[in-house]
């Protein structure tokens, strides 16, 4: 059985691919998929969710062939693989090459987490001069091999599906793996965190407490844990479908939140996701 990947023979053309993950149409049952986990610039937290699956970990291990997972096992089976889970962002020329090779090796490529899907917190460098970043941490900047930017995997190769989050949600990851084994669509909502707050009966922190909260424009998936802890959503899961950031930040600014605080709020773990990036740039341009 073969998957019809539109770019299977594309051999990864030189121009960077930028587009939405191709998504559901590709899901076909793979009886015992060969799974590989790859890491780029990141904290390990997303791939850790696989090991966090504790009681279900051994169950998963029986359903898939874990062929490449450096953090968990010494055995490395060479590709090609049915499914590649990619954590982390692209920050070096070598990694930009490595992801192309991984794309060639994986029939189905899934990015996991804010670094892989949006460049991560390290994408803050994209707004500064890289020389300043390097020299502020390292005494001999010349030795540091790094790109000026931290970018998402989809900026470099086609991506079939993405799991958002900083970190990703364990339940969504398990659902994705189950979906692959069964050949069905994964259940990943596109609606905002607000829906989750309503579902769990959390009083709106923006309305009731005057807290500038990104819940209305952030994709659900975390379970709305931050508002439930009396604090703002700070956008771990990135922009929801059709977010209206201009309206939201305008409301908060009108109500008294300083504009530079709003810039920082939008410019964090998913700050380089296109919708968030456009808004923090717009707010900043207004200030100058």
């Amino acid at each position: 059985m073969s998957l019809s990947l539109p770019w299977a023979n594309r051999d990864n053309a030189e121009e960077p691919f930028r587009g939405t993950p191709s998504g559901f149409g590709l899901f076909t049952m793979i009886p015992k998929p060969r799974l590989a986990v790859f890491k780029f610039a990141s904290c390990d937290g997303c791939q850790l969710q696989l090991l966090e699956a504790e009681d279900r970990l051994l169950e998963i291990a029986a359903k898939v062939e874990i062929d490449h997972f450096l953090e968990a096992r010494s055995q490395v089976v060479p590709g090609p693989y049915d499914v590649g889970l990619v954590e982390g962002s692209i920050t070096t020329a070598e990694d930009a090459e490595r992801i192309r090779e991984i794309r060639r090796q994986c029939r189905f490529l899934v990015t996991i987490g804010a670094c892989a899907t949006a460049g991560g917190i390290q994408a803050l460098r994209n707004w500064g001069r890289i020389e300043d970043f390097v020299s502020s941490v390292y005494a001999t900047p010349a030795f540091i091999d790094t790109l000026a930017t931290s970018t998402s995997i989809a900026d470099h190769v086609p991506v079939d599906f993405e799991l958002r989050g900083c970190p990703i949600d364990r339940g969504q990851l398990l659902d994705l793996i189950t979906a692959l084994v069964l050949g069905r669509k994964p259940h990943v909502p596109g609606h905002s965190v607000c829906v989750e707050c309503k579902a769990r009966g959390t009083v709106c922190v923006a309305v009731a407490k005057g807290i500038a909260c990104l819940g209305p424009v952030t994709q659900a998936g975390c379970g709305a844990i931050c508002p439930a802890h009396d604090r703002e959503c700070f956008g771990c899961f990135g922009p929801s479908e059709s977010p209206n950031l201009v309206s939201l930040t305008g409301f908060y600014e009108h109500r008294g939140t300083p504009r530079h605080t709003l810039v920082r709020l939008v410019r964090s773990f998913n700050g380089y996701a296109p919708a968030f990036r456009a808004e923090s740039d717009r707010l900043e341009a207004k200030s100058t």
Binding site: L124, F133, V134, S136, T146, R264
Partner: peptide, 22 residues
């Protein structure tokens, strides 16, 4: 061979309350 992420620089210019999350 992991690339550096420059955390000490990333927190510069951020608010005190943001630091634990970053």
């Amino acid at each position: 061979y992991e690339p550096p992420r420059f955390f000490e620089r990333l927190v510069r210019g951020r608010e005190v309350r943001e630091v634990p999350d970053i």
